[in-house]
Design a protein around this nucleic acid. Structure first.
Lengths: 231, 231
DNA sequence: CGCGGCTTTGATGTTCATCAAGTAAAGTGG
DNA sequence: CCACTTTACTTGATGAACATCAAAGCCGCG
């Protein structure tokens, strides 16, 4: 690669403070020379369940879904997450192989660093290690909490939850383009595709949302909150 | 062997290799002086959701359940776990306060070390840090996998799963005393108490299990495996 | 412009929660 | 230790929630 000759921009990266805090300039420089940025188009697989883990990856921009495949070949979506909330696959420190797949669901950019390099930093630099542990731990907690939250809700509550999740956690706006199919939503919340669609239609009829193909506008966010909580 | 004495016996503890690997003799000694063993009777709370985290705890013997309370006051059981599989509450590195409660469901012994002490070790000793990260990460992965697995199953599959979980993961025998109530099983697998009981009765009628109060004997483990998988 | 995948809606049946009522077991205070 | 109270367990009946099946419309893409 021509990384060596290019001026390294890692010191300006927003991740510097989030994942790579507590590293001095020369280490950041070294990190820069060891890293690679890789773009993924919507739909491409970033990590494959079962494959060997050799790299530490984090999402720089875009949106991804974590998922695994069931015995019958169905997809089970574990979570959908954006930059700063996703640091590699969680298995990297506990396993040799990926336990889940990761796919880009919007055009994304992933930063890739050899896992060995991160591990050596981890061993050498205690503060860095603590920051990373805390980050990995937070991500895990978030997934567990989300999964448990969804489990408590019924169909209507789950669909409402997903809409709010996109509006508040992912896009921070009441009008957004759904980055996933109806089926993927169903695989995420553990309901059938037909019933997800039916519920969206009900929301539309009740004036809670407006739908233009993939575009969703949340009209009555309060009602949606109530439905999500009550579910 | 495991007699409780005031003299420090940490160097012989089985956890030495599991959580506290990569520590030299003097550090182990220091750990010993900083630790406290605390017995809990069946039913006692070890950690309380929402309380401040000040200690690093791990289960030395016994059995515990992780749970949280829903908005309506119901218990949601996250997992049931035995020694070596539970190192403190998972939130300790990602949060100031416990996200989940932990309760003893069999007489248990918990080892308690000030969290600050663990954190200082973590910062100082990279190999220790790596071991701990790996352990915490594994525990998280296990919880996530279990939750996702359960979600895929129907009522019968879930009840079969729980019985197999106790028989294979917890007790390693086909005859065991259920450490939890029917209601707790229901809260664990996300089904109603009545239906859990009904399913157990069905298993009994079909000769798959035998039940004597709290004691369960698994008669046809293959059938149970099939029911669990097919669910 | 036609094919295949995604979406939508209705009809039907299964699965599961809820309610109710009764029994067994486990605490609790006298 | 017994009577009393409470909590856990059990079973049946009923209805609600949800999956499944089927058929048709839509949309993007070669």
């Amino acid at each position: 690669m021509n990384e060596q000759t290019k001026y390294c921009v890692c010191e300006n990266c927003e991740f510097r403070e989030i994942v790579f805090a507590h590293l001095d300039e020369s280490t950041i420089q070294e990190l820069c020379n060891n890293k690679e940025e890789h773009p993924y188009r919507k739909g491409e697989i970033i990590n494959h369940e079962g494959e060997k883990i050799t790299d530490f990856k984090y999402l720089k921009s875009g949106l991804v879904k974590l998922f695994r495949r069931t015995a019958t070949g169905e997809e089970q979506v574990i979570t959908i997450t954006r930059p700063f909330e996703f640091v590699s696959n969680m298995s990297i420190f506990s396993d040799e192989r990926y336990r889940y797949s990761v796919a880009s669901i919007e055009d994304s950019v992933v930063c890739i660093v050899r896992l060995d390099f991160i591990k050596s930093l981890f061993i050498k630099n205690g503060s860095f290690a603590m920051g990373l542990l805390s980050k990995v731990s937070k991500i895990n907690d978030k997934i567990i909490t989300q999964t448990l939250d969804i489990r408590l809700k019924n169909l209507v509550g789950r669909v409402a939850y997903v809409l709010l999740y996109f509006a508040k956690e992912i896009y921070n706006t009441r009008v957004f383009d759904l980055p996933v199919s109806r089926k993927e939503i169903a695989d995420f919340i553990g309901m059938s595709t037909a019933n997800v669609i039916r519920t969206l239609s009900d929301f539309k009829k009740d004036g809670i949302i407006r739908v233009f193909g993939k575009t969703i506008e949340i009209v009555d966010i309060n009602k949606l909150e109530i439905l999500s909580k009550r579910g």
